[in-house]
């Protein structure tokens, strides 16, 4: 069995008095592709965003390759790591967003190059070569010098994935990356993700594409009301859900 990549223990998160994550435990091994499913408000996106500290959390631990993410613990007290440390840790994971979030004043290539130059301290030539390689991988070599506003939603999302993956992250996080896309553009983005899975990239995907989750995931996590309600092999889970909740959810979702 491959080694442990990500360890989440007792993760708790609240907004004001509302508890969104009520103690999530999860272990992920290198090369795993895990889909997180669940109705909206179940905490799946929040959990994803805690992993790269886009959300602060109030309790529990997240460890990436054994390194504690976000907070220093000493005894029972904890304190947020320095901005510099957190930035370094964030570069270990890549993230693609529902709204793409490309930098609109930069070409596709420059979007990909920014992190390579500023974070990885590559020369511009080196960064350009890496950016072109990844844009080619997502099928957009010919669009390298186009601005986001000149690309379709599907193309923008593929650039956003290239931007994240070019940083050679240890783990990729996908947050409902096809939800904002027109139906006919969903396929091209899922194709790219499938390709990355085939390369052995470790990935955590929050998704509403049940068919896709079924096909591509090595494991599926079903979240409900801030906890993991059921998890397992998709071939098993989707066909024979163990909990009532999951059975209910699958009935209302697009699977089948």
């Amino acid at each position: 069995m491959s080694k442990v990549l990500l360890e989440i223990q007792g993760l708790r998160k609240q907004y004001g008095t509302v508890e969104v994550l009520k103690g999530v435990d999860c272990t992920m091994r290198e090369g795993e592709v895990i889909s997180i499913i669940g109705s909206s408000g179940s905490g799946k996106t929040t959990m994803l965003r805690c992993i790269n500290m886009l959300e602060e959390f109030q309790g529990g631990h997240i460890r990436l390759e054994g390194e504690e993410i976000g907070y220093e613990h000493s005894g029972s007290s904890r304190k947020r790591k320095s901005e510099k440390d957190i930035a370094r840790q964030r570069a270990l994971t890549g993230m693609a967003f529902q709204q793409f979030n490309l930098f609109p004043h930069m070409t596709a290539a420059h979007n990909v190059m920014l992190g390579l130059v500023k974070v990885k301290k590559m020369s511009r030539d080196e960064a350009r070569a890496v950016a072109e390689k990844w844009l080619d991988r997502v099928g957009l070599a010919s669009r390298a010098d186009h601005y986001p506003g000149q690309l379709s939603g599907g193309q923008q999302q593929r650039v956003a994935i290239a931007r994240a993956i070019a940083m050679s992250p240890r783990l990729m996080l996908f947050d409902e990356v096809t939800s904002a896309l027109d139906p006919e553009l969903v396929g091209e983005v899922l194709q790219v993700i499938k390709g990355l899975a085939a390369d052995g990239m470790s990935m955590l995907l929050v998704t509403h594409e049940m068919r896709f989750a079924y096909e591509v995931s090595s494991r599926v996590i079903f979240m409900n009301q801030g906890v993991i309600c059921e998890e397992g092999d998709p071939k098993e889970m989707f066909v024979r859900p163990k909990t009532e909740r999951l059975a209910e959810f699958l009935k209302t979702s697009s699977f089948n």
Binding site: N52, R90, T93, G94, M95, F97, L114, A164, M167
Partner: peptide, 16 residues
């Protein structure tokens, strides 16, 4: 300026 752009920057490891 949409907050998502800041988040995208943070996600690739840029400092504020």
């Amino acid at each position: 300026i949409p907050k998502g752009l800041t988040e995208a920057g943070l996600a690739i490891g840029l400092t504020p």
